[in-house]
Amino acid sequence: MPLLIDRQLVENKWVFINPEEGQQSSDLVVGIEYLLIPYALIEEIAILNLEAMGPQLLGVQINGDDDISDLAKWLPQLTLIAIEFPVFRDGRGFSLARQIRRLGYQGELRAVGHFGRDQLGYLQRCGFNAFDFNGDIPTEELVQAFDEISFHYQGAADDPRPIYRQEIISELS
């Protein structure tokens, strides 16, 4: 299933593993090259000898209930951070993304779950560069949604300058 990454349609390589009760996560990860796990399992998974078992790259999926105050220490090991939107109206992911970019994370930041075309501009501004449309195949047309509004008053992850620190304002006054 393709995703939108940096405005391109890209095939997804990552496999999300979420062990059910009684399952050993060490069994499930064997043979998976791009391993995506719930953030709650990071302590458990990180101590495994992943490279010997299969996974070459590690990602975590965060939801709004996770406490991410320790996230900074795991960042060097992470190639993907996915943030889950449980429903369209749950906007916690926007702030989580801002905080994660503020920590200096420069890898893929992926929105997963229930978000929509009409949030893409805001999601991108908050630091997301990848979008997994919950099973829907993204269309080329979606890319237009990013730039429907050409100016921004606020600084954000993509451009920290509010309107009053942008060149445009001095040109206008």
Binding site: G91, F94, Q119, Y122, C126, Q154, A156
Partner: peptide
């Protein structure tokens, strides 16, 4: 008003 208008982070508050 300007800061809050189309704020990318605070459009889907609780």
């Amino acid at each position: 008003r300007q800061w809050s208008t189309l704020h990318p982070e605070f459009a889907f508050l609780p």
